[in-house]
């Protein structure tokens, strides 16, 4: 095991795959000599050279297009889009081109590429640098969507995403970059589409993704201490492929479900999970499934307002308690 920060684990995941496969290329704004604005690609230029690590202009459409063209013809590009908010500037490339090309061509091409981006709030950057955009690609058939919560998963899920033959949009929560943890050394892969049970419990299932999985863990610990309520916490890890089985199995045991999302409420991924549970697990429920989300507002910059908007441990506890009246 190595003790790494989340950002170091990202670089380690990329390095692991660049080492084993010379078709893996890194491209993006400031990713080479600059090491990335979140310093998640530091050292990769020195290690792999300018033939593998490519600085680009501020041209998100060109970055995504380059990744797509490269992927169709023998490369495995890893493209960085600095903030997930900027996905909107190259959304055509992602939603209309990358997502649909395999299907439209009747399977003639593969698109083994990863688009990494910094996601989520909590840093008081205001509405254009704070969004949780993971729902956007989830709504587009043909894309896989991944969001790690720990350094170990950052390395393992990113390596798996690079190795995957489908396009993956990979969300790195800004709040997590500085977090630390044990990361397996050597070849480490965390398969896509397998949720992880972070904590077992029989009273309620708390479901999170990325940062909200850790928030759910904090809520579970307090629920146990303060309310003698044992929550099962599941880290979804991926929205596509979605590990609905693990969620359904848990709900069968607990009879209660709370989803914890940072994205705005309408059509958030929690709504999809809840609808699956309503259709396939209704009989197990002892109370309505409920969602903790951000309200439907752009995120404000003022710390007080932003904290109010984003899901909190208190929100989760309150919601969980509302299910046992």
């Amino acid at each position: 095991m190595a003790h790494l920060t989340f950002r170091e684990a990202i670089a380690a995941g990329i390095a692991q795959e660049m080492e084993r496969d010379e078709t893996v290329m890194l491209l993006g704004e400031d990713v080479a000599a600059g090491g990335g604005v979140f310093k998640a690609t530091q050292g990769l230029l020195d290690r792999f050279g300018p033939g593998r690590v490519w600085d680009t202009p501020i041209s998100e459409q060109a970055i995504v297009g380059a990744a797509m063209g490269g992927a169709m013809t023998g490369l495995r590009p890893v493209a960085e889009i600095m903030f997930s908010d900027f996905l909107a500037t190259c959304w055509d490339g992602i939603a209309n081109q990358i997502a649909k090309m395999r299907y439209m061509t009747g399977g003639q091409v593969s698109l083994p590429l990863v688009i990494r981006c910094a996601n989520g709030g909590g840093v008081h950057f205001g509405a254009q640098h704070s969004q949780s955009a993971e729902n956007w690609p989830m709504a587009i058939p043909g894309l896989k969507v991944v969001a790690p919560s720990t350094p170990a998963d950052a390395k393992g899920l990113l390596a798996a995403s690079i190795r995957d033959d489908d396009p993956v949009v990979f969300f790195e929560h800004k709040w997590l970059y500085g977090s630390e943890g044990e990361v397996p050394e050597g070849d480490h892969i965390t398969p896509l589409g397998q949720a992880q049970v972070l904590r077992s419990g029989g009273d309620v299932t708390l479901l999170g993704l990325g940062w909200t999985a850790l928030l759910a863990m904090q809520a579970a610990e307090r629920l146990a201490e303060e309310q003698q309520m044992q929550a099962e916490v599941i880290d979804l890890r991926c929205l596509v492929p979605l590990d609905a089985c693990t969620v359904l199995e848990s709900v069968e045991r607990t009879g209660r479900l709370v989803t914890v999302e940072e994205n705005p409420r309408p059509l958030g991924w929690g709504a999809e999970v809840v609808s699956i549970v309503m259709e396939e697990g209704f009989d197990w429920l002892d109370a309505p499934a409920r969602r903790v989300t951000t309200p439907s507002v752009p995120l404000p910059a003022a710390p007080l307002l932003e904290d109010l908007a984003r899901p909190s441990v208190d929100d989760i506890i309150e919601t969980a308690l509302s299910l046992i009246s």
Binding site: A66, A67, G70, M72, L75, N96, Q97
Partner: peptide
């Protein structure tokens, strides 16, 4: 490698294919 119906969308993709040949 494709016919594209979003006007102009494929010019960056062409760059990517050319980049691939180059590397």
């Amino acid at each position: 490698y494709g016919s594209y119906a979003i006007v102009g969308a494929h010019l960056p993709i062409a760059c990517g294919i050319a980049w691939s040949s180059k590397v």
